[in-house]
Design a protein around this nucleic acid. Structure first.
Lengths: 110, 110
DNA sequence: ATATATTGCAACCAAATAGTTTCAAATTAA
DNA sequence: TTAATTTGAAACTATTTGGTTGCAATATAT
């Protein structure tokens, strides 16, 4: 097992995905975030740490509070990876579309 | 830690992502796949098992060989999850676009 | 019929992961 | 100044993960 800390690994955890969804709506403090989960504040903090290391979140200090917000740029990496496969599922749709068109032109078979 | 075996966890591993890329081009046997990695055939087999459980790959038997191929439909789940964030990085682009347009209309500042 | 090839599965192991509790640092409130 | 709040980090633990080797099952080749 080799040390990995990339975006794919970061979004593998459902809690981290939920954190991203929450802070994408508005920046939040660790305390506020933790209230949404059935886990300790420290555990949430560790998730935030991982998300920060992947540059998926940004922080802004305000007194003793830290507001974490979502940084979408790194998620584009995932989108870019999906690109190579996108044609494949669109092709399937095209083929279905072709079949449906044929059914229209020859409504009762031949 | 709760039992997880979803698409996000499946694509978290770089070897599994590479397997998907390979079989997206053409169906392959575990033996053929293993040649592309610095790991044992059995380890590759375990990765394939996980990908199969997530319905990311399909198999077709041919004598004693098994050809694994890519099933794109489940990857759409990842694409769907990205959708909620897509606006955010497109908005950034729009803002940059706006700035560039302003530079064009007022080429030498004011 | 016997040997070879291809594969999945079980048992085992080291490392990583996600969680906990405890504690120290820094900021705000009393 | 002193107490309370907010936070991250350290130490520890149980579980998961990705890897290994060995083996049994099946299909093909000799």
């Amino acid at each position: 097992m080799i040390e990995r800390r990339d975006v794919f690994q970061a979004i593998a955890d459902p809690t981290r995905r939920a954190i991203l969804t929450l802070i994408a709506i508005q920046a939040m403090t660790p305390n506020a975030l933790a209230e949404h989960f059935d886990t300790s504040r420290q555990a949430v903090s560790k998730h935030i740490r991982i998300l920060t290391e992947c540059e998926l979140v940004q922080q802004e200090h305000s007194g003793r509070e830290i507001y974490y917000s979502f940084n979408p740029t790194k998620l584009k990496e995932v989108d870019a990876w999906l690109d190579q496969f996108r044609q494949l599922w669109e092709k399937r749709f095209d083929q279905l579309d072709k079949v449906l068109k044929q059914l229209k032109t020859k409504p009762h078979g031949k």
